[in-house]
Design a protein around this nucleic acid. Structure first.
Lengths: 159, 159
DNA sequence: GATAAATGTTAGACGCTTCAAACAAATCAA
DNA sequence: TTGATTTGTTTGAAGCGTCTAACATTTATC
């Protein structure tokens, strides 16, 4: 049922989720700024999305997601967040770059991959006490090439 | 100097690296099949890449990368491989899907991110004895939700 | 309320990537 | 070597997403 949507249509949908505060519907100008495109591009995207029943939008009015649109937008947003967190919190990539990269990558991730990525993040970060140490080890490796052979090995062997 | 190239131009360049065996130059038909596009698309891409000095190609002849083209193609290939390995070997995503996802994601990864990703893979997989255990723990978490709190915590605390 | 400013739309164009159809060259096979 | 097959190119058209310029509507201001 869910036909595949283009990267740019996904971006338009996602931006609606990201821009609305509370229940306030979103303006074309906001989307235009957020996505770095001119307003006519937004208008024409909205016409298309409206025809597909993914957004609610009448001339000169505000924009809202339909339930179908909401589903897709949330999906994209989840992919985005999974990637962004992985890059920023695990790889320790600069937050700005992480956000930008995530925004482009989010359109290429299959459902299976997204699910595993989310679990991986959870796995690595879910243990508040372990997390900082674990990442510190990785960080040290990035900066000095130190591989903490002994400790990890010893530990995991016991298991 | 290196102007940004479109995802599709990057794909054409990368395919040349992936298709050539030894020093054998590559045929248009091979690229066509590998990329899932018709031959006229390849021809027209090659005209453009040739004008930019990235490939060597004369009418009805084989295709070769110039040194400049080689550099870009290798770059794309590295991003591809980093992503593919992460997905396949760490997240344990099905190899087919990993390859497909990597192929689409490869165009969105910034240099910094790629570098950190590569280091991360190295970090996780570089210790032959640890690696299987570590991933086994993650795999168990994916399948049963078990978080190996104690072991990792204990170990990393000692450090 | 009238008018200025901000916001949004329409129309038409362009670049990019792809394709099918028709044609051209190269290669194979007899 | 000549005809058939494979391979590659040209041409022209299409879809998509974007833009600018001109126009329309809404909103804010006096």
């Amino acid at each position: 049922m869910e036909t595949k949507h283009s990267a740019s249509m996904e971006d338009y949908l996602e931006s609606i989720i990201m821009l609305r505060e509370g229940n306030e519907a979103v303006r074309v100008s906001q989307m235009s700024k957020a996505l770095g495109v001119k307003m006519p591009s937004v208008t024409s995207a909205l016409r298309k999305l409206s025809q597909q029943g993914l957004v609610e939008h009448k001339r000169y009015g505000r924009v809202q997601l339909t339930p179908d649109g909401e589903k897709i937008a949330e999906d994209v947003f989840h992919r985005h967040e999974a990637l962004r967190r992985f890059l920023a919190e695990i790889l320790n990539v600069d937050p700005e770059i992480a956000a930008v990269d995530a925004c482009k990558m989010e359109h290429s991730v299959s459902p299976v991959t997204e699910e595993k990525l989310a679990k991986f993040i959870e796995f690595v970060l879910s243990r508040p006490k372990v997390q900082p140490e674990w990442l510190k080890l990785f960080d040290r490796y990035v900066n000095y090439g130190e591989i903490p052979q002994e400790c990890m090995t010893r530990c995991l062997r016991e298991e």
